[in-house]
Design a protein around this nucleic acid. Structure first.
Length: 416
DNA sequence: TCTGGGGTCCTAGGACCC
DNA sequence: TCTGGGGTCCTAGGACCC
């Protein structure tokens, strides 16, 4: 059957949402019209550009660079802090509009979705008219613009939505590949990042077209399966389904944070690990999973990162068990350098729906399970700060660490 | 070019088994 | 004891995405 895939991409998502929210609340200035950026707090060492406005882009400001560097390029840059709960609501509101058009939606990220309109021609007619209707409705009802890419598969639709911004609709059907996609620089291709583009340049490949016409055997030899993958992408070959993502099939859960100041002693480090483990443990239980592998990562003040993982004998969803393992990993991994950043990840998930028991462990699983469940319920109802480990009191660390920088961030909002 | 946080997948080396 | 080979598991690290 002939396939018809849309890729919807919010233009400068965080910044657009921030701007729309401010306008709705009486602010005169539209952040999208001036050089502006959403950025983290520099005092706590989170000072990077998360999203920039189109006028800011004209100054050469790039996502991910430090606010210090950004201001060097544009001294009058207006920087606003992120407010993630607003973005979640905007994302959800857009999703609800999209759902009116088709249930076949894959939320690819907070600001990107794939829609499958295959075999619905009788229902919607011309794809350009349909895309126009969706785009205008989002603009009118929610106050922000999107790009829509249209093609026969997800890869081409995604490349299409990236062509020219903002507020645009592009098609990229197979017969258009040569004209619209092949002249683009290779780094514009999905899955060609910095390391790959360097390798490709060394092979004298600079455009997607040059990659498409290159010998796939040689690419395979030099870059393994990834070489073959990007060769297929360059030729527009991709066939994955638009499928609903549900959190039951997550592969892992993690939480990491950069601390406001370097950590120099084990006690404080293990307390931070506890805070991270609280978040990971709760998300893990919320997803209905247990994990079999626990890992930590440490970035020191020289920005060197290292990690270590351990496979445990019995799958667990216990915050305490995760924390015990994390601390033992820390003791093996840490060489004493001041710590800038730490993370906890759990992987190899399996259903949490079975009885955990180990003769070798005196720890009372049933008691711990009840405790975790009770704490989770209180936090869902009253927020992360409602319950706090006594060891974290007066430590300057949050009860639950998280990337949002907001103590009262509503946990597990409707998204994902 | 030195900064965030949340993910996924792949690869290579070592241990261990047959 | 040495040499050869195949398979799996575990772990560290890299690359990519948003």
């Amino acid at each position: 059957m002939e396939r018809l895939i849309f890729h919807i991409d919010v233009n400068s998502a965080y910044l657009s949402w921030e701007a729309a929210f401010r306008l709705q609340h009486g602010e005169e200035l539209d952040l999208r019209d001036i050089p502006s950026a959403v950025g983290g707090d520099e005092a706590s060492r989170h000072g990077i550009v998360l999203t920039k406005s189109i006028p800011a882009k004209k100054y050469g400001i790039r996502t991910g660079e430090t606010l210090y560097q950004a201001r060097a390029k544009c001294p009058e840059l207006v920087v606003v802090p992120p407010r993630y709960w607003i973005y979640m609501q905007c994302s959800q509101a857009m999703h609800e509009i999209l759902m009116e058009y088709t249930p076949r939606i894959q939320r690819f990220s907070v600001d990107e979705s794939f829609l499958d309109f295959s075999g619905m021609k009788n229902l919607y007619g011309d794809h350009m008219t349909l895309a126009e209707a969706i785009k205008e409705r989002i603009k009118k009802e929610l106050g922000f613009t999107v790009n829509i890419g249209i093609s026969e598969n997800k890869l081409l639709a995604k490349v299409a939505s990236d062509l020219k911004k903002p507020d645009r609709i592009h098609t990229l059907f197979p017969e258009e590949i040569e004209k619209k996609m092949w002249p683009l620089p290779v780094e514009d291709l999905f899955m060609v990042g910095r390391a790959t583009s360097t390798k490709l340049h060394n092979m004298n490949i600079y455009t997607i077209g040059e990659l498409a016409k290159f010998d796939p055997e040689l690419l395979r030899y030099k870059m393994k399966s990834h070489g073959e993958l990007i060769w297929r992408y360059a030729n527009g070959i991709e066939g994955s389904d638009v499928r609903k993502s549900n959190h039951m099939e997550m592969k892992g859960v993690g939480n990491s944070t950069t601390t406001a100041f370097d950590l120099e002693d084990r006690e404080t480090a293990c307390r931070l690990l506890l805070s991270l483990c609280e978040t990971v443990g709760m998300r893990l239980r919320y997803s209905g999973n247990c994990c079999r592998v626990i890992s930590i990562s440490i970035r020191d003040n020289s920005l060197a990162t290292c990690g270590m993982q351990k496979k445990i004998d019995v799958a667990t969803d216990s915050t305490r068990k995760i924390h015990e393992t994390a601390c033992s990993l820390f003791d093996r991994l840490w060489k004493g350098r001041p710590i800038r950043h730490m993370g906890v990840q759990v992987t190899e998930l399996c259903s949490g729906d079975f009885f955990q028991f180990s003769m070798l462990d005196s720890f009372d699983y049933e008691k711990d399970k009840k405790l975790n469940r009770a704490i989770d319920e209180i936090r869902l109802a009253h927020g992360a700060k409602a319950v706090m480990r006594s060891s974290l009191l007066h430590s300057g660390l949050s009860a639950m660490s998280g990337g949002v920088g907001e103590e009262d961030y509503p946990l597990m909002s409707s998204i994902l």
